[in-house]
Design a protein around this nucleic acid. Structure first.
Lengths: 126, 126
DNA sequence: CATTAATAGTAAGGTGTTCGATATATAGCG
DNA sequence: CGCTATATATCGAACACCTTACTATTAATG
């Protein structure tokens, strides 16, 4: 007897870059509309990252296809159309994994940096 | 009077990916030869990252061109040729910046995750 | 009335890092 | 003699992201 089997497309999901990470992090405390994420990423990164709309919507498409983010309704505020996005359970897990990975790399790197010999001091007082 | 002006190539320096980060971290506690970095990255990442040779040597070339890593002599051990690499002062700074950036993103993401409502529990004991 | 800001997209073209495969050489092991 | 491990290296494909540049709608501001 033959069975038809569906495989989950695991989608190698190469490696998450900062813009994508910040989008997930921005959605972690509740749904947001697309444009708001530009400001959130700016804030979360301390002004370092200015998301471009091209980057933003491409990332949202990718994350939705991957099942980490889902549409969460639309709204009209002051005549402006807003489309909301939220993290799925899978998205929370993805972000959690990324956080764990960064935490580990961070600790290891800091430990290695601590092992370095003290750098020579410019002026040594006798 | 015309002046000839040279511009520093600022090299947008996108965003550092995990393999590159691990290479820098692996070199933070002393010089290593190229191939040894594969094992170091494996260890630092808790077995998650298996550096590919293509990635390794491409990254080393890039980091040397950028002045973050420098050659630190050669050696022949058991008939095997080893070429050593070490972090420059600039490389230490680059790694330090990356650590700081990760630390910030990490804290922000964890704070947001903490703001989430408690997820429903599968079985609740009365 | 024209412009700017907020909001949502799409498309073309390009960069940089990593992956996968391949090549070369030596030492050791069965 | 071939296989595995150590070691160096190169090349093309894949892919996330970037930049620039558009289209559209509504509200507010000059």
């Amino acid at each position: 007897m033959l069975r038809r089997v569906e495989y989950a497309v695991v989608m190698a999901t190469q490696d998450m870059r900062e813009p994508t990470f910040l989008i997930l992090a921005a959605l972690a405390n509740g749904k947001k509309h697309g444009y708001a994420l530009i400001g959130e990423a700016d804030e979360l990164s301390g002004g370092r990252v200015k998301l471009k709309v091209g980057t933003l919507y491409a990332a949202l498409d990718r994350l939705q296809a991957e099942g980490a983010v889902a549409s969460a309704g639309e709204e009209v505020v002051d005549g402006r159309h807003r489309r909301y996005y939220e993290l799925t359970d899978h998205g929370v897990a993805v972000l959690g994994d990324e956080v764990a990975r960064m935490e580990q790399n961070l600790e290891q790197a800091k430990a290695r940096l601590r092992m370095r010999p003290v750098p020579p001091v410019a002026v040594r007082l006798s």
